[in-house]
Structures are given as structure tokens and as C-alpha cells.
Design a protein around this nucleic acid. Structure first.
Lengths: 223, 223
DNA sequence: ACCTTTAGTGACAGTATGTCAGAAAAGTCA
DNA sequence: TGACTTTTCTGACATACTGTCACTAAAGGT
């Protein structure tokens, strides 16, 4: 019996230490995992609560103890990748160091994380239009970048690095471009090469925001 | 009887001239109209065959004589606006006259047509991810612009008007930007002003494709 | 006016959703 | 450990919408 109680003790300690993966959390994770696996190889439109839960071994109705519906699941999956995306874009956002170099860094990181989490981003973007709430969350997520990018543009305009123009519409346009390109490229399979994606958006960002540097780079190429 | 046969004759001639609005076509049109009306004020996710047909006065099952499903309807609605969009973009596509001026024309026209048909474009883009076929059609539609834009870019590069870069990824990026911006701006309500939309995408297109002209324009502004 | 062809209807089966009362398992404490 | 409370899970149900099919009604031709 000492063995049993020892192992119980151990389990409890571990549970407490890891902030109690309280069965509920475990199941929730299992569902999230199954969701990610499914969306890695299938479009969102083919996901049903039934097939999803069949994979986990739980009953269909167990799903509703952890999520309101499939869109709630998508929201949770989005939360898992949000930070990664925001993190990668920091170099240029913070505004220190060479603007062109940091922008290149940030865009490269963005493409990497897009490549990594393409299927989830694609799935969220696919699922969003069929649900009020998820649509709002998704738009808010994309919109949050608009603010940051517009602010950074304005700074660079004040520093004379970037031509004068209304920052918000341009920020918005550039961000929509990123989203559209990334989701299409890496959403289903890995159809397009990272290089093509990066070269496309990099060119546009650089020539829009730093045309003077870009121009000199171009002049060199033309000779 | 002479009157009757005369009026019959007249009707038949008119019918023949207008290519026979053969009842079927009439009903089809009525459904399409009802669809457009609905989507002008509601998102696609709230459209059901039942509510749609209630408006037309026909039974729900009549719908299926004219369309396979709601996605079929969307495909038909897209066809109605396709031409308008392609038409508006012609000035720059054909490649005659001042590139900057014609690009400005084309983008202005694009924004206009986006403003006009925003709700349909939004609806199609919303509906696409939930249907294999519509998704394909929509992607093909967007993709068709990639080809044309890439070709035009290549011409301008050969003429020395546009810096050297791989045209396809950039064309793709610019087009996704347009689609994303237009649909968001005019898809639901007319939330954003035409001016903002146009200024945003115009700035990006011009500085990417014609940085030399853009640079001089900017220099002027800075003085 | 008659007959053929085309359009429209109501009833039906199918599929997925979300809820709820009750069963089962996990957690708690003497 | 055993009795308890609380949390998690299950099967059965009601609901909503879809797409089809045999049948009726209307349109179109002669």
C-alpha cells in the first residue's frame, strides 16, 4: 500500500506544481490537439464535432463542456499562435536599429511563423465568416497590427525616413496583403516556397516605406 | 382573333429579341435579385434557402431547379460582377499611355466597382471557404489577375520603368492586398471612405512599380 | 383546344447541431 | 480505506436546415 500512496503523493505534487492539469484541462488539450491534427490535413469545412471527438475517444457531447461550438475551438487555437506572431514582428515594431534591417527581420519571422502555423491561420480565417464572434476576434487580431504599423510609419515619417502619407490606410493595406499572401501560401499544404512569399511582400513593404534606400538598392542593380 | 395572334406574334418577337426570358430565366432572375437584396443587408452566414425563397414567393424546393445550392447562387452572382471588375482595370492592363496615369485610372475604377458590388464580393469571399467548388472559382478569379498583372510588370521592367524583381510574387501580393482591403472596406456597410481605400492601395502600387516617378512626386511634396 | 414539355410543390429522409437529466469518475476528508 | 461531494462524461432528445422525388400545375407549341 505504501507504493500506492507514494505514487498518489507524487501525482498530486506534480499536479500542484504544473498548476493542476485538472482532468478538464487535460481533456480540453486533447480536443485542441485533435483539432490541430485534423486541420493540418483537412479544411475547416470538413470538421464536425462528431469526427473530432471520435478521435479523442470521448463522446460527442463532451465537446460542449469545453467549447461553445467549433468556432470557440478555433478561437482557442488562434490564441495558441497569437503570441508567436506578435513576438516575431517585434524587431521592427520596437523601432530601434536600422529600419530596413529590422523590417527584413520582422517580415522573415512573420513568414516563418506563417509557415509554421499556416493551417491554423487558414482555418481561423475560413471559419471566421460563419460566426459573429469569431469574425470579430479575427478582425480585431488583424486590426491590432494596423495600429502598431501605422504608429511605426508615423515615427519614420517624422524622422524623414518615410515619405509623407496618411499612415493608417497604408498600414491597413500592407497588413491585409500579408494576411492574404500567407494564408494562401501556407494554408493548405506548403504550396508556395517561403522565398517567393518573402520576396513578394518584402519588396512591397520596402519600396513603400523606405523608397530612398530601396531606390539606391535598385540603382545599383540597374548598373 | 386577329388581335390575339398579333399580340402573340409581338410577344414572340420580343421574346426572341431578348433571347426568351422563358419563365425559367425569369424565376432565376427573381432568385438572384432576392439574393442580392438579402446580402446587401445581411451576411452570407444568415442566408438560408428557406428565407430566400420566402421573399420570392416560390416554394423552397423551387430553388433547386435553378441552383445546386447556395454556393451555386453565389457563383452566379459573382459572374454578374466579374466583367465589371475586369473592364475597369483595362486602362493599365492594355499597356498604352502613361503607366502611372493609367494605373491610377485602373485603381480608381477598381475602388468604384468594389464600392458598388462590395456586398456581393464580401459574400462570395465569405461563402468560398465552405465549398470546394466555389473556393476554386474564387481563387481562380483572383488568380487570373495575378497573371495579367505579372505580365504587365514584366513589360514595364523591360522598358526600364519598373525595377527588376520576380514579377509573380509581387503581383500576387498586390492583388491580395486589393481584395482584402476592398472586401473589408465595402463588404459590410460602407464603413471606410473611398478616398482612404484608394489612397492606401494607390500609394503601395505606385511606390512598388514606379518608384522613380513616385520618388519625384515625393520630393516635390517634401519641399 | 389539345397535348407536350417545363416549372413548381409538399412530403420525406438525412445530417449535424446543442441541451439536459442522469451515470460515472475524480477529488476530498474523516 | 470508505463514504461523501463535486466535476466530468454520456445517451437520448428536440431542432434546423438540407437536398430529393413523385406528383401537380402552368407554359408553350401546333
Amino acid at each position: 500500500m505504501s507504493e500506492k500512496s507514494k505514487s498518489n503523493l507524487l501525482r498530486d505534487q506534480l499536479a500542484a506544481r504544473a498548476s493542476a492539469p485538472s482532468k478538464a484541462a487535460q481533456t480540453r488539450s486533447a480536443i485542441l490537439d485533435a483539432g490541430r491534427d485534423f486541420l493540418d490535413t483537412n479544411p475547416f469545412r470538413n470538421l464536425t464535432v462528431g469526427t473530432l471527438m471520435a478521435v479523442t475517444g470521448y463522446s460527442r457531447s463532451a465537446f460542449y463542456q469545453h467549447f461553445n461550438d467549433l468556432h470557440g475551438l478555433m478561437e482557442a487555437l488562434l490564441d495558441q499562435v497569437k503570441d508567436g506572431i506578435v513576438q516575431g514582428a517585434q524587431p521592427w515594431f520596437v523601432g530601434e536599429g536600422d529600419p530596413v534591417a529590422t523590417l527584413q527581420e520582422s517580415l522573415t519571422a512573420l513568414v516563418d511563423v506563417g509557415y509554421e502555423h499556416g493551417s491554423i491561420l487558414r482555418a481561423v480565417s475560413d471559419a471566421a465568416p460563419s460566426d459573429d464572434r469569431l469574425e470579430y476576434v479575427w478582425q480585431a487580431f488583424l486590426g491590432s497590427f494596423d495600429e502598431i504599423v501605422a504608429a511605426r510609419i508615423q515615427e519614420d515619417q517624422e524622422r524623414g525616413l518615410t515619405p509623407e502619407f496618411d499612415p493608417m490606410p497604408v498600414a491597413h493595406a500592407l497588413n491585409r496583403m500579408d494576411a492574404g499572401v500567407l494564408i494562401q501560401a501556407f494554408g493548405t499544404g506548403k504550396t508556395t516556397s517561403k522565398e517567393d512569399v518573402l520576396s513578394g511582400i518584402m519588396r512591397v513593404w520596402l519600396s513603400t516605406l523606405y523608397p530612398f534606400d530601396a531606390a539606391s538598392a535598385i540603382q545599383q542593380k540597374q548598373e
